[in-house]
């Protein structure tokens, strides 16, 4: 697959916008959620919504850092589109009676840590780091979770919403992989040196420390929902397949790093990775919510209301 024309992509993004009000959230079908499904689905949707929201914040950081005007504008759209996905998922939760009044569902502790990290450091990160991590998160978590959701939930409104969401996501991934290839085009050793300098950055180490347990935690949540573990791994392997389809893509050291990490995650027998990371999940699970700083104000922008009058 050749790299996409980003200017044309921007035009396409602008011309294919949709709004929450395009969907009738009160249409019949909500009753198709079974009683057995309901509690697990509630947890699942909350996680999914938060992943979209975290993705949105990462795109916000990319929109400041991207090397060209076009890419900056594309990322500012993606930022808003991920927010739209989170809003739509929240609207689904409301439809299914999963929201406690007007309250936004609580993010799990690993997500809270990632939110905190993004809020403090994401804007400082070079475009290469987030530009590679975000497609991985999208393909692995978003991709796998959305597919799974559509396979298990019969509500037609859910299918209607995710059809739109998936269309957006396919554009996000298309741009994501193109950017990864762009990053692989210049001399690799320079990139490697730059990357090593960045890896030494304590802010990035903190980011890695919050990203790793998030993946394992999500894996646990997904399995609890009944998603076969293999599906998640298959999605992660897709990252390796598409990201490494060209010479440029393979030359991107961040791709190599994330790919390698993906292999560790999907190999359960790799004790050297999973024992400490699972331990981290447990430890972070013990962190009392009160010990975490207040959520940043960008989190409060989430809404399930298609229309805002104030």
């Amino acid at each position: 697959m050749a790299s996409i024309d980003l200017d044309k992509m921007l035009e396409k993004i602008k011309s294919t916008q949709w709004a929450l009000s395009d969907i009738d959230w009160d249409a019949p079908g909500a009753e198709l959620i079974t009683e057995e499904q309901w509690p697990k689905l509630k947890e699942f949707m909350a996680d999914l919504m938060w992943i979209e929201h975290v993705g949105a914040r990462a795109f916000a950081a990319l929109s400041k850092k991207a090397p060209t005007d076009t890419l900056r504008e594309i990322y500012s759209y993606f930022h808003a589109e991920e927010q739209r996905h989170a809003n739509a998922e929240m609207a689904l939760m409301r439809r299914w009676g999963m929201l406690d009044g007007d309250e936004i569902p609580e993010p799990n502790v690993n997500l809270r840590i990632v939110i905190e990290w993004l809020d403090r450091f994401a804007d400082e990160m070079p475009v290469y780091v987030l530009g590679t991590v975000v497609p991985m998160l999208e393909i692995a978590l978003d991709g796998a979770l959305c597919t799974f959701l559509l396979e298990t939930v019969e509500d037609p409104v859910c299918h209607q919403a995710f059809e739109k969401i998936n269309d957006d996501e396919s554009r996000h991934l298309g741009v994501g992989f193109t950017v990864m290839e762009m990053q692989g085009r210049s001399a690799s050793y320079i990139k490697m040196v730059q990357m090593m300098a960045r890896v030494m950055d304590p802010r990035l180490i903190l980011g890695i420390a919050s990203y790793m347990p998030l993946l394992n935690k999500m894996r646990d949540n997904v399995i609890a929902m009944g998603l076969p573990e293999e599906k998640l791994y298959k999605a992660m392997q897709k990252f390796e397949r598409i990201g490494g389809r060209t010479e440029e893509g393979r030359r991107n050291p961040w791709f190599q790093l994330i790919k390698q990490h993906g292999r560790w995650v999907t190999n359960r027998s790799n004790k050297a990775y999973h024992v400490p990371v699972d331990a981290l999940v447990k430890i972070t699970g013990l962190v009392p919510r009160k010990a975490l700083p207040a959520v940043p104000s960008w989190v409060k922008e989430l809404t399930y209301e298609p229309v805002a009058t104030r």
Partner: peptide, 9 residues
């Protein structure tokens, strides 16, 4: 209407 899907009336 903004891209996050909300109509600001």
């Amino acid at each position: 209407r903004t891209v996050e899907g909300i109509e600001h009336q």
